[in-house]
């Protein structure tokens, strides 16, 4: 449309004057809106919450394995992650807490990124002494 406008100048009638200028203004608005939406999306994409969520899932599974094996608490260095950021910045620390209701174990993983606290919770049935293990996530 806009490219055609340039050629339309040559065949422009009196009552069409200013049309090209108007379309340029509209195009400016449209491009501005697209840029606004895309640039907003860029920051959300770069936050990479999915990687941190995956990290939390794996940490919860690690905690379940340690509970099943009665191996104590998972190492502190495992609870720190540089996923989604450069190694020069401070690592994200994951807090892991476990609660128990009979043989039902619930592991809660919490982490804070950009001032917002995210949580992942997983529950599993573990028979620590029976020798046979069943699970339900």
């Amino acid at each position: 449309m806009t490219v055609l406008d340039a050629f339309a100048v040559l065949t422009m009638k009196n009552n069409q004057r200013g049309f090209m200028f108007l379309s340029a203004i509209f195009l400016t608005l449209i491009v501005s809106f697209i840029a606004l939406i895309t640039l907003n999306a860029k920051y959300k994409v770069q936050q990479r919450n999915s990687t941190l969520y995956l990290t939390a899932i794996n940490l919860a599974n690690e905690q379940f394995a340690f509970i099943e094996g009665d191996a104590g608490d998972i190492p502190t260095e495992d609870k720190k992650s540089y996923n989604g950021m450069s190694e020069s910045s401070e690592p994200i620390e994951f807090k892991i807490s476990t609660s128990r209701n009979g043989n039902r174990f619930t592991v809660k993983v919490e982490w804070t990124v950009n001032g917002e606290t995210e949580t992942f919770e997983s529950t599993k049935t573990i028979y620590q002494t029976g020798g046979q293990n069943s699970n339900e996530n």
């Binding site: 990479r48 990687t51 995956l54 990290t55 794996n58 940490l59 599974n61 690690e62 379940f64 394995a65 340690f66 099943e68 094996g69 998972i74 495992d78 992650s81 540089y82 996923n83 989604g84 020798g131 046979q132 293990n133």
Partner: peptide, 13 residues
């Protein structure tokens, strides 16, 4: 060039 590092564990009954 993005890096991801995951740690996990599994119990081997």
């Amino acid at each position: 060039k993005q890096k991801v590092k995951f740690t996990t564990a599994v119990y081997m009954p």
